[in-house]
Amino acid sequence: MSFPAEGTRELTTAEDTQAFAEELGRTLQAGDVVILDGPLGAGKTTFTQGLARGLQVKGRVTSPTFVIAREHRSTVGGPTLIHLDAYRLLGEGSSGDPLGELDALDLDTELADAVVVAEWGGGLVEQIAERYLLVQFDRETAVLRDPDSEARIITWRWVDAA
């Protein structure tokens, strides 16, 4: 199954965002890393819920803010989804060593055997992956056009970290 390596879509509702992410999730493979970049309330967790459906993993996907990382095992023998809050991982009290911080989480899954989705992932993922998918969320443009809008513009592209 193919998915465009880069693009932009305007998604009107949370359901549209999840459906788009589900389509993307069906194409992700073990070792893939996804950075979700956007302001608070932009739809990063909603997007991850769709990715989880596409990956066919167990468990309710919620914001990892208070636990820093959650693991969701596959129901079909595919990769585990590791959903993490990189802002908290690299925030106050951090050692400044992202690999050490990830290791300290004592995840049961090796990163190479999982799809890693990092909310607020900039600054972390560049150091743990040679290639990653950058997904940026823009809520401001749609709201400027229509203050009642729930739309978000999502832009994505694969980035070579090297």
Rank of each mutant, 00 (worst) to 15 (best):
G59L: 07
R9M: 11
F137Q: 03
L124W: 00
T46I: 15
L51P: 01
G50Q: 14
G31T: 11
L105T: 00
T46F: 12
G78H: 08
A52E: 02
G78E: 08
A129R: 04
E110I: 04
R26T: 15
V76T: 14
A14Y: 11
A21N: 11
D148L: 14
D148W: 07
P4M: 02
L102P: 03
L102S: 02
E6M: 04
G77M: 12
G25M: 09
G38F: 06
E130V: 13
A86N: 07
W156F: 08
Q56G: 09
E92A: 12
G96Q: 01
L105E: 01
I35E: 15
K58G: 06
G38T: 10
L90A: 07
L89W: 06
A129H: 03
R73D: 06
A21Y: 15
E6Y: 11
H83F: 09
G43Y: 03
E150K: 15
S2N: 14
R53K: 14
E101F: 03
F20P: 07
V143D: 00
A151G: 08
A69D: 00
Q18C: 12
A162L: 04
R53N: 05
E130G: 13
F66R: 01
E150F: 08
H83T: 03
V67M: 00
A5C: 04
V57D: 00
T80R: 01
I153M: 11
A104R: 14
A21L: 12
P98L: 04
R152D: 05
R70C: 00
A162I: 01
L133V: 06
H83R: 03
K58P: 02
K58D: 12
G122D: 13
A114P: 09
E130H: 15
Y132K: 09
D146G: 07
I153F: 06
R60V: 10
G77T: 08
G78V: 10
E126R: 13
E92K: 07
L99T: 10
G50I: 11
D146E: 12
R88T: 03
R26I: 09
W120S: 10
V115P: 08
G38R: 11
H72L: 06
A52I: 02
L51S: 05
G38N: 10
W156C: 03
D85G: 10
A30V: 09
T27P: 06
G100I: 13
D108C: 07
E119Y: 01
S2I: 13
V117H: 02
R26V: 07
A151V: 12
Q18W: 04
V67Y: 00
S95V: 06
A104F: 06
I82P: 02
G122N: 14
G122W: 05
S74V: 13
V57W: 04
H72D: 07
Q29I: 05
G59K: 03
R145K: 15
A162V: 06
S94M: 11
I82H: 06
D37V: 11
A5Q: 15
V57C: 09
V116C: 09
L84Q: 05
E130K: 13
A30Y: 10
V76G: 04
L111I: 14
E92R: 10
S95P: 00
A19R: 11
L55F: 03
I153K: 10
V76L: 12
V117L: 04
A112T: 13
